[in-house]
Design a protein around this nucleic acid. Structure first.
Lengths: 345, 345
DNA sequence: TGCTTATGGGAAACCGGTGTCAGTAGCAAG
DNA sequence: CTTGCTACTGACACCGGTTTCCCATAAGCA
């Protein structure tokens, strides 16, 4: 299993009877180049199956073609959607995606990221929530001269460095949907403290409640940590209330599944006894019973836009496509987990 | 936002008053090096915050430090688990993980992978099922001199190139569990044709049925494509049978969730009216209602083992840890979706 | 015809590391 | 005092590209 030697630019030059520089010119589509020469060199390249060595190129150009994905997001589906969105754009370029998951809890997280950036010197990095909300991280990137794009629930940075969904408005729409169905006591399972997405989603809930002239009750708001189990605990607290809320908005699907779980345990029927709305539209939302009404945000589209911002025309990407947009709209997906409250008509 | 120039080996050499070669020796822990010199150079390295340029290193060493992850697997949780398992090992090394998802349906898939391998020349690649079952792909890697490790449901390759779970045995155990609970008519939702995992899991089912002296009925075996919707369609066919099966083994959790979905639609209570067992132990298994009895296979552990096989001592990895193993055992996770059949005791 | 100006293409240096090999210093042996 | 050995260290070429600069050659012009 010896590694077959790969042809280099020197081989191409020798066989085509030109200098390396001319081959380089062909590869880089230099305009001042005779048509005949170009064809001859291209022919040799094709025959040899020559591919430029990315490492040598990176060295000579004093920049590489790596995009880093830095995240601490536990939602597998979301991370994978992002990866696919990014790669869809990078595939047509010479960029490669390298991964750098981190541990939000670790006190050395920033040092760890700094080491990563200094060692690899990626051309750019994509930051996923929740660490994308960390301003010192953005400053770190900027300080090291590494391009970055942050993905988040609200515009936290200038448009060139940001792809944002409008969570507040989306949640407001979702809660208004519950209100329109007749619900008056609507519980909120908020996200964890310190998460911008949690703040935005809670604000959307509160806006909807207040706009409808309903009382904003503290007891109806319980915090979770975006995980299933915390959704269960929050649901238990909400369903222990008297009178019970007739609907619950959960700040993500995972916790909404926890609510459904507890409802089942208590013999409550969804949506007849309790309406539930989630957020994210992960696969679980459509796979559990009943299928969950939820908010879908365009992760892959946002990731594509982020990739375009990062490589911005460099390396063969066609710029200006949807690379301009930095705010993306979410949609409410209506499924079977919402009905009028019990005893309503 | 000018990119701050990073110190190079020349800067270190100049400031420390030694040659580049000596700095290189310090970095690479060469033993024949004066302690004083080493300390002095290390001091300068620390002061400057010098990090060797990976691209230059790769060029000089005529090999790079990239591990590729090639897959066409739709299961996000599984892919992410693999990524984490790999990165857990690679993090302590100088290797980076680059992603190359492919489209199984595309006729140019092999060419696409070949182009990727020729361009990046990764040090090694990890192949995930189902494409890991493709022997021509393994041959392609071997032919190009790229190390590879295949992950699969059975030993398809020599141990050095393989991490395998024993799906057949695991499924056999799961079905025996159903039989022990009293079930006699057990449906199988098999995986898609052409998947080794589908073959292995079906074989496990058949072994269990035959070992128990039960009749092997073709009508009780329906194929799906590992997706939720196909699980629903398969469940509909199985539940239309008369007499109805009292239990269903589904070849993955996703399809098992589809079965649960159909059961709910038809007003069947799980597990009282129908027992269900899945495979994979993805999060959905524990999040749906009722929680699903399923087979858990040690994805992250297998990925770690694969990474060790790939970098095998190279680049600072401690070898011989669990890098030897190539067959991994799965466990049956018992939850609430299995009960004795209706009318039994 | 002779001089200027484009235009295409080559030689050599360079990017930041590593491998080869020769050289120097210190010290024991001859 | 020379020789030989050991222990370090440096000069230089090289990896495979790109950039800079400069030189042919041909065309344009008087």
């Amino acid at each position: 299993m010896r590694k077959p030697a790969q042809p280099t630019i020197n081989d191409v030059a020798r066989i085509a009877g030109v200098s390396k520089k001319t081959v380089s010119r062909v590869i880089n589509r230099s305009p001042l180049l005779n048509e005949d020469t170009r064809r001859r060199v291209e022919q040799v390249i094709a025959e040899l199956g020559y591919t430029p060595n990315p490492q040598a190129r990176a060295l000579a150009l004093r920049r590489n073609f790596l995009i880093g994905l830095i995240h601490d997001n536990p939602n597998a589906q979301m991370v994978l959607n992002v990866q696919h969105g990014l790669l869809e754009v990078l595939r047509d370029t010479e960029f490669e995606l390298i991964l750098h998951p981190v541990d939000r809890g670790s006190p050395t997280m920033l040092d760890d990221i700094r080491a990563f950036l200094e060692k690899q010197r990626p051309y750019g990095v994509m930051l996923l929530p929740p660490i994308s909300e960390n301003d010192s991280l953005a400053e770190l990137c900027a300080g090291l001269g590494v391009r970055y794009v942050r993905m988040g629930s609200a515009p936290l940075d200038e448009a060139a460095n940001m792809v944002a969904s409008n969570d507040r408005e989306a949640v407001r729409g979702a809660v208004e949907h519950l209100i329109a169905a007749g619900h008056r006591r609507i519980g909120l399972i908020a996200g964890p403290h310190g998460f911008r997405s949690a703040v935005e989603r809670q604000a959307g809930y509160e806006e909807a409640i207040e706009a409808a002239g309903l009382p904003l009750q503290r007891t109806l708001i319980v915090h979770g940590d975006y995980r299933f189990e915390s959704g269960m605990r929050a649901a238990e607290r909400l369903l222990d209330l008297a009178p019970r809320p007739t609907a619950v908005f959960s700040s993500n699907d995972e916790m909404a599944a926890g609510v459904l779980h507890v409802a089942h345990q208590r013999g409550l029927t969804v949506p007849q006894d309790l309406s539930i709305v989630g957020f994210d539209d992960t696969p679980i939302a459509s796979h559990i019973w009943p299928p969950l009404t939820t908010v879908r945000w365009p992760i892959a589209t946002m990731a594509r836009a982020a990739a375009l911002k990062l490589v911005g025309g460099a390396g063969g990407a066609r710029p200006g496509e949807d690379g301009e947009a930095s705010l993306f709209v979410s949609t409410l997906i209506r499924r079977a987990s919402v009905a009028p409250p019990p005893g309503a008509g």
